[in-house]
Amino acid sequence: MWIYEKKLQYPVRVYKPDVRMAKYLITQYGGPDGELSAALRYLNQRYTMPTAMAKGLLTDIGTEELAHLEIIATMVYKLLKNASLEEIKQAGLGGHYAQHDRALFYTDANGVPWTAAYIQATGDPVTDLHEDMAAEQKARSTYEWLINLSDDPGVIDALRFLREREVVHYQRFGEALRNVYEFKESKRFY
């Protein structure tokens, strides 16, 4: 089960509305390498992990990704909140407005809705952990491109925090992978 904490993992400051940045940022909400994909991927793969370490790590990182999803949502919400219809149209979010007004929706930066096809669970822990490590790198790259696209020091600060977390997650997944290899080795000899 899960318990909600009524606070963000990291304080989000947004200094000015910026519809264009919201349009780019939404990819970390509902895009292929976004936080929803990450959370659902890890929380779903954990059931078939062979070691206690991998089960625990996927549970904890999957849960942290939900906190990151909320950070992204908060940024998008704040960037869009007081935007005029004119600004929304100019930033290329007219289509989003037609379907969702200023509500959030799980899409990538081009409006393509989230799909479970973004994530995989092969049941092979070695393969799945490699996917997870690749996912962390893809998220890290995306955060770097998003940092390049922003000029708001508050948004950049939060994106840097999220980027750093991907680096840490990558490291931990690598350690869990080594643990799975060791487990497989030990089974071969007995």
Partner: peptide, 12 residues
């Protein structure tokens, strides 16, 4: 946050 980070570290 420090606790979350250490938590992941202790997992491995």
């Amino acid at each position: 946050f420090a606790i979350v980070d250490l938590h992941l570290y202790l997992d491995t």
